[in-house]
């Protein structure tokens, strides 16, 4: 696969799976405002997915549509970071997953605003404005619940301990990113890592949470290796289009 197509799928699959996971909170979040917030943010992410898949499909030139990419690929063909497929264990996990994602997503979109690829630059300049609102919310809630009651702090710390190893997968790179960096499509990747480290260090400190020290990192999602939750997510997400492949409404 062309590096550009692989990269667009890595980005689009990550926003799609998180959008799907986030949408599952609709009707289940602890308060109405957060229920609406998660659902609306899921919409932003799925909208961004559409844009990534359009670039992927156009570059690939095989006549596939964004819907084909979302609904007719199998687990090993999905290239999302493992972090976003981690389960909706509780509100603390969902929020921490969102925050760690946002802490990477914002500097990534900022870097892509300078991309040499026109469609990617347009996408980033649009998305970055939405992503700023995403981290504004998740950062605020991480601090409020981390530096909150004993119970909320314990839940946030448990979520951080469980999810931190997966954050590495967001920043995992290989020859695909290297090739795109050389072409000027993907500028400033080193800045993304530094921005993530600075953002998480400052915010988690304010939230009185402790970053796990063992440094254990899980990667592989970007090459199609997923955790045990992924199959269930796809089964649910893809069931209707796979049952009625040509249905229109």
């Amino acid at each position: 696969m062309e590096p550009l197509v692989t990269f667009c799928l890595r980005m689009g699959d990550t926003t799609l799976i998180l959008g799907q996971q986030t949408a599952a909170w609709c009707g289940h979040a602890p308060v109405l405002e957060e229920d609406i917030a998660f659902a609306n943010m899921g919409l932003d992410l799925i909208g961004q997915t559409q844009l990534w898949y359009e670039i992927a499909a156009q570059t690939e030139g095989k006549g596939r549509t964004p819907d084909d990419l979302a609904f007719f690929r199998t687990e090993r063909q999905f290239l999302n970071a493992q972090l976003v497929e981690r389960p909706n264990t509780d509100f603390a996990h969902a929020l921490m997953r969102q925050y760690l994602f946002d802490a990477w997503h914002l500097p990534m979109q900022e870097a892509l605003c300078d991309s040499g690829h026109e469609a990617i630059r347009d996408l980033a300049q649009k998305s970055v404005k939405e992503v700023r609102y995403h981290i504004d919310r998740s950062r605020d809630l991480i601090v409020r619940l981390g530096d909150g009651s004993d119970e909320s702090r314990a839940k946030m710390q448990a979520a951080l301990d469980a999810l931190w190893p997966y954050a590495a997968d967001l920043m995992a790179t290989d020859e695909v990113e290297a090739a795109l960096a050389d072409q000027g499509v993907l500028p400033g990747l080193d800045r993304v890592r530094r921005a993530f480290d600075a953002e998480t260090a400052a915010t988690l400190d304010r939230a009185t949470l402790t970053i796990p020290e063992n440094g254990h990192a899980r990667t592989g999602g970007r090459t199609g290796i997923h955790t045990e939750t992924m199959g269930y997510i796809l089964a649910e997400m893809q069931s209707v289009p796979r049952t009625f492949p040509d249905a229109r409404w």
């Binding site: 405002e33 609406i36 917030a37 609306n40 943010m41 504004d136």
Partner: peptide, 13 residues
Amino acid sequence: AIAARGSTPCKAQ
């Protein structure tokens, strides 16, 4: 501000 998201993504409460 009560919440950063309102009845649509573009609004806050």
